[in-house]
Design a protein around this nucleic acid. Structure first.
Lengths: 114, 114
DNA sequence: GCTGTATTTCACAATAATGTTAAATAACTG
DNA sequence: CAGTTATTTAACATTATTGTGAAATACAGC
């Protein structure tokens, strides 16, 4: 595991970590708050956070004895563009392929970004 | 690792497996053909294929002594819709948030599918 | 049936991932 | 500074992952 994309996919491969990200979508949280919904101990969550941080998916702050965790979705751009390449393979109707390409051509610039 | 999404992300976390998928985007291939570009042995590739198959990302056929491998991108729908939820967090311009939501509201139905 | 080609399974080794409990560190609070 | 709260690190156990070489299986063709 070395490249950014592998690091990202690997971090996302765990349901606990995805749940943490989902929680952080509602705003930053402390480690205790993130631990609360799960049946595992705080050190385990702490290590999940380390994995997420290494993947660049969260950043940490400091607020007194708290270490607030915030979402950083930037690495997901890479995932989105990786998966976008394969969209044509699950759009079952080949007739829509040209529509899709046209969409991509003139559409929302964000779709192509990165 | 149990749920489909974890299975999919986990399968995608390896660069060799992603390279295999990229190769299969050009059409089905035999195990030998898939092994050729890599510095690892065929048994190793065979196991990567097993991982991809368990994730539903490839299907296998039989053609004489060959076991052709084909791409099945269906599980990537789940990845696309999972990541789509987080798009708003990497679209740096908050001004575009309403545009994005409007897009989602009226836009291509495929964007919301699954 | 024997031989060659393609692929998988076996037995094994090395390393990574995930969780636990106990101890250490950081910072607030009186 | 002593005590309390929040979090991380250490030491360890368990299980997964990934790779190897050797043997087994599947099929084709003579």
């Amino acid at each position: 595991m070395q490249d950014q994309l592998s690091l990202t996919f690997s971090a996302l491969a765990d349901p606990t970590r995805r749940a943490i990200l989902a929680r952080l979508a509602h705003g930053e949280a402390s480690v205790s708050e993130l631990t609360e919904p799960f049946a595992i101990t705080m050190p385990a969550i702490s290590r999940h956070l380390k994995v997420l941080e290494a993947a660049g998916l969260v950043t940490r702050g400091r607020n007194a004895q708290y270490r607030p965790v915030m979402l950083d979705a930037a690495p997901l751009k890479g995932v989105a563009s990786w998966v976008e390449y394969y969209r044509r393979f699950w759009d079952q109707s080949f007739d829509r392929m040209d529509v899709y390409l046209a969409e991509l051509q003139k559409g929302n610039p964000d779709d192509r970004k990165q």
